[in-house]
Write a protein that binds this DNA or RNA. Structure first.
Length: 120
RNA sequence: CCAGCUGGCCGGACGGCCGCUGCGGCAAUGGUCGAAAGGCCGCCGUGGAGGAAAGUCCGGGCUCCAUGGAAACACGGUGCCGGGUAACGCCCGGCGGGGGCGACCCCAGGGAAAGUGCCACAGAAAGCAAACCGCCGGAGCCUUCGGGCAAAGGUAAGGGUGAAAGGGUGGGGUAAGAGCCCACCGCAGGACCGGCAACGGGACUGGCAUGGUAAACCCCACCGGGAGCAAAACCGAAUAGGGACGGCGCGGGCUUCGGCCCAGGUGCGUUUCCGCGCCAGCCGUCCGGGUGGGUUGCAUGAGGCGUCCGGCAACGGCCGCCCCAGAGGAAUGGUCGUCACGCGGCGCAAGCCGCCAUACAGAACCCGGCUUACAGGCCAACUGGCAUU
């Protein structure tokens, strides 16, 4: 998984499309038609102390690792902003949330894409 | 057994599957880039959060900056004594004071006869003490001759105020009182004795002075240069810009090719004028500064574990063994299963069911401390009860 590393990238993606899900908020910005898709993670202090923030980021990162490569659109940068629910929501549901969100943002075909995914 | 007190320790376990990251290896299997060295992937092995990693409150190592040495002044810190330590505001052992039946706990614990300030309210008086009531006293005045009023003066025993009223109790004494005198207690000084010291004991002496506050200024003793790993050192691209050198070139017009005319920027001499010089574009090579980035700093250290020795202890010493996280938008994980512990419910019990499947909390240059947070549990010594032999 390619990571977003610089502040400039995060600021840029913040201007892209965004979708809310219980465990996270996802932002997407098409960088170019080609190249790998990249992911960044943001967990603010509002969520909790360092232990809680680490756990939220790790669960989201694991979700991206499992389905990000197949579901994400090439050449696109994504930023996942963690929410408090990412701590307790079952991992299966987080995976489903992420797959649905990526599809709605115009990703590749996934194992269970929503019907409206390709319309936009 | 119950209650307590002190110290130490742990703070989920095991196993699948899929990942991240450090180190070592690739002799064996593979892919890719490269001339090679080697890199990236892959494979194998192995390591990968805490007792507080936290707060960033002290003390150091290390780095850079400043600084001729020393001292003084200022500022800040520390503050019983002895020891431990690289050092400390930390730790250990004592001393003094306070609390507890006790084990034990708590203390910002130098100096108030160097000086200054403050002591609100209440109260007559709050520091070279003080007469409000009271007590004594009785000049003098009045008198119904019973007595009444009462100045000067004396008095800190009693009342009242206050956190605190200038020793306490008893006796003598006195007009009433008062260390005025006496006894005991307290207090002050103190030869001498014990202790390295803080300090303890104390013959004897003194009629009793020197109120509290230093977390008020202050005085005394000791300590202290500043900033911090985003410190700092090194390597160093593209692009733009700077400098040096070399090569080719060197504004426009006219020309009889000898020159003539008109211009720009810039340097010097003082501005205009004027004089002298340089430059303009392209290409190449080199130099220096700096940004992104990379490497080092960065993990062998006041290091850990163990036996023994010294010491009441903190700790120190000999020897042996071990290498024990190293990220960088920041790895140390995700998920599933089984189980221990715990909590709740049901049950006489064996047990069954349910819940959480654990509190506080995540290394960021590294050590020594302190402080704060913390579900649950284990061990040991000691103390006070109860029971038993």
């Amino acid at each position: 998984m390619e990571r977003l590393l610089s502040r400039r990238d995060y600021v840029a993606v913040a201007k892209g499309r965004r979708l809310g899900r219980p465990a996270f908020l996802i932002q997407a910005l098409e960088r170019s038609a080609e190249g790998p898709s990249r992911f960044g993670f943001t967990v603010t202090r509002k969520i909790g102390n360092a232990v809680v923030r680490n756990r939220v980021r790790r669960r989201l990162r694991e979700a991206v690792r499992l389905i990000g490569r197949s579901a994400a659109r090439p050449g696109t940068d994504y930023v996942l902003v963690g929410r408090a629910a990412a701590l307790d929501r079952s991992f299966d549901r987080i995976l489903a949330d992420l797959a649905g969100a990526l599809a709605e943002l115009g990703g590749r075909a996934t194992t269970s894409p929503p019907a409206t995914a390709r319309q936009g």
